[in-house]
Amino acid sequence: MIRDDLEAKILSREWPPGAQIPFEADLATRYGCSRMTVNKVLTQLVQAGLIERRRKAGSFVRRPQSHSAVLEIVDIRREVEALGLAYHFEILRSEIRPAAADDAERLALPAGATLLAITCRHFAARQPFCLEERIISLDAVPEAGETDFADISPGAWLVARIPWSNAEHRIRAAAAAPSEAASLLIEAGAPCLVIERRTWDQARPITHVRLTYPGDGHEVVAHFAPTGA
């Protein structure tokens, strides 16, 4: 089918975000069909949030632009739906294991403490939107180890169920490692925006998460007011 072929080119990033799609007449010639058929397929891709059509310019692969608030814990589903795109997520890896040395750096967990390590991929209109790599202290949140996260993502589940008193954000630019690039369908070494967050309930650590976004489609924002006289 024409739609399947065009969709595959977009999702594989053979046509990357911002790329112009061939004109209707060219696609009709390529697939041996009428322009009306091509127009209907392109309309379906617009409705799926994969492309946008610009008057007198043509059709382009949509480049989602999302925003994260620095001073808030934002649900990724809300980020995606605010763009007018369909959202879903999938769990790539999940394991319960003892805390290792680098976990102590990430969440100040004592060696041997039990944690849940979970990796989740979020999608916007069937395109990878964000990679979530999270550890959760099972000493603080034992019920997380019994949850399959089939219907709700780990971050949304934690915010809805577990109280937290303070959080720390770290934001930086980074080149996509090969494993991250494969998950996000981008080139290894491509620029990414990385947001790392730790949360506590008083002095008790709850979770550390690393959120990796393709750098060309995300920005962070902070709203603040002057303090003092």
Rank of each mutant, 00 (worst) to 15 (best):
I2Q: 07
T147A: 13
T227L: 08
A150H: 15
A175S: 14
R126W: 13
C130N: 10
R106W: 12
R198Y: 04
I73V: 15
W200D: 02
A86T: 01
H208P: 03
V220S: 08
S179T: 12
V80D: 04
E81I: 03
I186R: 03
L131C: 02
R13S: 09
D151T: 12
A173V: 11
R121K: 14
L193Y: 08
H67Q: 15
S66V: 14
L92W: 01
E90R: 15
K40V: 13
S179I: 06
R63W: 10
L83P: 00
G58R: 01
G215C: 01
R63M: 14
T37A: 14
R3C: 04
L42M: 11
P163Q: 08
P16L: 04
S179D: 14
R55L: 11
R35V: 14
I162H: 14
A188G: 10
L6P: 02
E196G: 04
V61S: 08
R126I: 07
I195G: 04
L184N: 07
A101K: 15
C192V: 12
I91M: 02
Q127F: 07
Q127P: 05
D148T: 13
T212P: 02
M1G: 13
I2E: 05
K9N: 07
T207M: 11
D75T: 05
T114V: 14
